[in-house]
Design a protein around this nucleic acid. Structure first.
Length: 190
DNA sequence: CGGTTTTGACCTGCGC
DNA sequence: GCGCAGGTCAAAACCG
């Protein structure tokens, strides 16, 4: 399996009681039971990979200080591992997150630059750019048209600066993000 | 005062 | 060429 440069990696992330995120790459035949296909149409024809909400998560209570999103950090800090999974750096990545709030704290600082109503959706789509100078990473945030309790966040680009979180991946490509300030190359395997 | 948000206008790509 | 939809810009307002 492989991803084209513009492919979209989809996952589903549900806030854990602990300040960490988990991502579970599934196989190509992974059944999408979360309605993710609705927003996977961004890049129809490309392979889609879904994470699972899985029972490994604890109670689904949002964190008091905001949730976290593993996506950008995964790409930035786990580049080699993601490549090993067939994901090219620079891919567009979408996450479907169960949350009451639309602004999830993924560790980066974002500046909103646009808002658009989307056809066939009652919910507007918000556009954000990374506030860090020289970093062109963008993200789009919108509520799932089918289930407004979910927020769909799509990241585009790779941060070129430090991230407050990092990811550790095991041999089964099971990645976990830790909210610790760490540099670009500090992704470890075990 | 500087950074962020809001929001209407503008640009671009695509289908007809 | 035209209309539509999605994405971006930029000025004004807002806020700490």
């Amino acid at each position: 399996m492989s991803f084209s440069h513009s492919s979209v990696l989809y996952g589903e992330y549900t806030p854990n009681v602990l300040p960490s995120c988990e991502f579970f790459p599934a196989n190509a035949a992974s059944e999408n039971s979360h309605g993710a296909a609705d927003f996977a149409a961004f890049d129809e024809g490309y392979y889609e990979q879904f994470a699972s909400p899985t029972a490994a998560h604890g109670p689904e209570e949002p964190l008091a200080g905001g949730d976290c999103s593993p996506t950008a950090d995964m790409i930035m800090n786990c580049g080699d591992e993601m490549k090993g999974m067939g994901v090219e750096i620079g891919s567009r990545i979408g996450f479907r997150t169960r949350s009451e709030v639309e602004i999830l704290d993924d560790g980066f600082k974002w500046r909103k630059y646009g808002k658009k109503s989307v056809k066939n959706s009652p919910n507007p789509r918000n556009y954000y750019k990374c506030s860090s100078s020289g970093c062109g990473v963008k993200k789009r945030v919108e509520r799932d048209r089918d289930d407004p309790s979910y927020v769909i966040t799509t990241y585009e680009g790779v941060h070129n600066h430090l991230t407050p979180g990092f990811v550790i991946c095991d041999h089964d490509s099971h990645c976990r993000m830790y909210p610790t300030l760490i540099s670009h190359n500090n992704c470890s395997l075990f």
